[in-house]
Structures are given as structure tokens and as C-alpha cells.
């Protein structure tokens, strides 16, 4: 019984390590007021220079603003009272692995497209609770109002 528990624990730990090894998707460029990165259930302050990974959730408070530059040179900016999940980020042009997905749960987003949108525009998806936005370049603004 005990070895079984140990095995499960080990597998979970190993899986966590594999997840942590996926390369960063980008970096925080601007952070003011209340701005946090939620990763695996825990929140850290989004400081300038902090790395951002696929599956991270970014949140701003009433006085918060946040900007990111992703590895493909796309630029995401969030206004106050906003929540954005980076649902997919694949950027490996050499082996054709490309894709960008973000989900704006609420608030205001500016997206300036990068190399993924240029090489594989059909893989870029911005989602809100209301709609799905496909972007073929280059600068899109979204306000998602949820009552």
C-alpha cells in the first residue's frame, strides 16, 4: 500500500516538474497598481521582467494595468479590473508548432499581433464569454462586460 502511495506521489511530482519545464511564453513589460499572475492556484505579484507561461491567468485590480511581450513579439495589454488566461502558446516555427489562444474573462484588452499571426493566422484565437475573435493582424481592442 505504502509503495503505491509513494508511486502516485512521485508521478505527481514528476508531472509537476515537466509542466514547470515548458519554456516561458513571454515577459511582463509594464505593471502598475494591483496586477497578479495566477499559476497553478497561487498568485504572485506581476513585476516588470517576470516570466509568463502558458496556462497562466493575469489579473488586475481597479487601479491595475499590465503589459506583456510574448516570444513571437505579440503584445498584450490589460486595463483595470481585467482577467486574462493565456490558454495556448506554441511558438516553434522550425517544426511548425504555432498557436496563440487567450481568454478575456472580463475587462479591457489590447492585442498587437506578432509572428504567430503572420505565419499561422488561423491559429490565433481571442475568446470572451460572449464571442470568439479571429485575428489576421494586427491591432485589436476588446472590452468584455460581464454583469
Amino acid at each position: 500500500m505504502r509503495w503505491r502511495v509513494c508511486l502516485v506521489a512521485f508521478v505527481l511530482f514528476a508531472a509537476r516538474d515537466v509542466a514547470a519545464q515548458s519554456p516561458p511564453a513571454g515577459r511582463v513589460k509594464v505593471a502598475t497598481g494591483a496586477a497578479t499572475i495566477v499559476r497553478g492556484g497561487s498568485a504572485v505579484a506581476a513585476a516588470v521582467g517576470a516570466e509568463v507561461f502558458e496556462a497562466d491567468v493575469l489579473r488586475t485590480g481597479p487601479d491595475g494595468r499590465l503589459s506583456l511581450m510574448l516570444k513571437d513579439e505579440s503584445r498584450l495589454s490589460l486595463g483595470p479590473n481585467s482577467e486574462l488566461a493565456l490558454t495556448r502558446f506554441a511558438y516553434s516555427p522550425q517544426d511548425q508548432q504555432l498557436g496563440l489562444g487567450v481568454r478575456l474573462a472580463s475587462g479591457v484588452l489590447s492585442y498587437v499581433s506578432g509572428i504567430i499571426a503572420r505565419l499561422a493566422p488561423d491559429t490565433v484565437r481571442l475568446q470572451t464569454p460572449t464571442s470568439i475573435i479571429g485575428v489576421r493582424g494586427t491591432h485589436v481592442l476588446v472590452r468584455a462586460e460581464t454583469p
Binding site: V30, S67, S77, L78, L109
Partner: peptide, 9 residues
Amino acid sequence: FGDVLAIIP
């Protein structure tokens, strides 16, 4: 959108 336009890197 002034808030987000002002912080585009």
C-alpha cells in the same frame, strides 16, 4: 481604451 493604449510596449 486609453488605459491600455498608453501601455503598449
